[in-house]
Design a protein around this nucleic acid. Sequence first.
DNA 1: AAGCATGCGGACCGACGGTCCGCTTCACGA
DNA 2: TCGTGAAGCGGACCGTCGGTCCGCATGCTT
Lengths: 198, 198
Amino acid sequence: MAQQRAERADATRNRRAVLDATERLLAEGGGDHVSLDRVAALAGVGKGTVFRRFGNRAGLLQALLEERSRELRDAVENGPPPLGPGAPPRERMLAFLDGLGAIAEGNAVLLSAHDQACAQDRYDDPSYRFWHRHLGTLFAEGRPDLDAGFLAHALLAVFDGDLIRHMTPPGDPRRFTRSVRQMAAALLDRDGPQGTGP
Amino acid sequence: MAQQRAERADATRNRRAVLDATERLLAEGGGDHVSLDRVAALAGVGKGTVFRRFGNRAGLLQALLEERSRELRDAVENGPPPLGPGAPPRERMLAFLDGLGAIAEGNAVLLSAHDQACAQDRYDDPSYRFWHRHLGTLFAEGRPDLDAGFLAHALLAVFDGDLIRHMTPPGDPRRFTRSVRQMAAALLDRDGPQGTGP
DNA sequence: AAGCATGCGGACCGACGGTCCGCTTCACGA
DNA sequence: TCGTGAAGCGGACCGTCGGTCCGCATGCTT
């Protein structure tokens, strides 16, 4: 364990600039409008810089996504119930889906672009594995008679940027999250509906 | 309604050749191995021919997919129960998922490639709309208390080529379909599990 | 101040999806 | 059978993209 040299100041500055540029491009055009040339140009850096920092297109989008979801992840790992450990599976899952839904609804374009870029290795992505393990555990507790691992994949499959944009009407920004919660509740309740909260 | 001139023989021959070439390329390499140059070359036709026939990459893959699922679609529309009209929603949905699962398991690579190519307009694809309408109707009958349109999207979202490959172990090729059926059954049963068939 | 690892930029590459247009091939009527 | 016009064909061509590479600048450390 040698003492690591501190990260150079320009590197830090550039990483931020690149992430911000990506965000701006995502906001103003569709997800396919975000080419790495454009990102580099808007960030005022060379293309090589983008790749050294993030490896490839998928890495860049993943970094942005991770930034948006770090808070939720921390809360799930160490926060107070019902998000954190301690709450019963049903409440914990609904709280989690509420959080994930909010992030997804607020970042649908980013989500689409990320899925597009990741393609087949989406399921090896550490972020995905974390969400999957969390949901899988909760399902295993709540419904030991079903295939918990599959249900976890199924719930996550629904967090698709295009689907969210497709089924979110202008006047009801949380319709998606509501329906996801409702579905999860239906899956968890072996003995008839119990409602999905306030 | 003027009398249409019959389709030229070479056109028919080429359409078949292109579809077959696509199939072969999908089988021997990953989905991203199927470039339109390669398809044209292997089919022994010019690139222009591919595009005139199928419009673009998405159209080509969609044509192939439609070919694989036409039989199921016909059976759902006009066939005998439980696939066709007449059976109770639960049985009809399970039969349908069984059929769709078989197709998906046998064409996972094609499915991935198609999703990749379609991107955002996946939800406007006529094939998708048909499956969605079918599932949505059945859910609406079986579970009027839930968001049937959403549940239909959710079930279809699970038919993802990469997910299928990721969760299909070598020794159990139908694990995916079994889990999908189980999930659908859990969603349909308001009053506890009733089993998913033989 | 000097030395050196680290980071930087942008020219460069191969591959891809998609377009275009001059030429060929086929179906049909005479 | 043959002429003709339309339908189809091929493949050169284009712009763009993700990704690589290496000579040069920057900023830490001593």
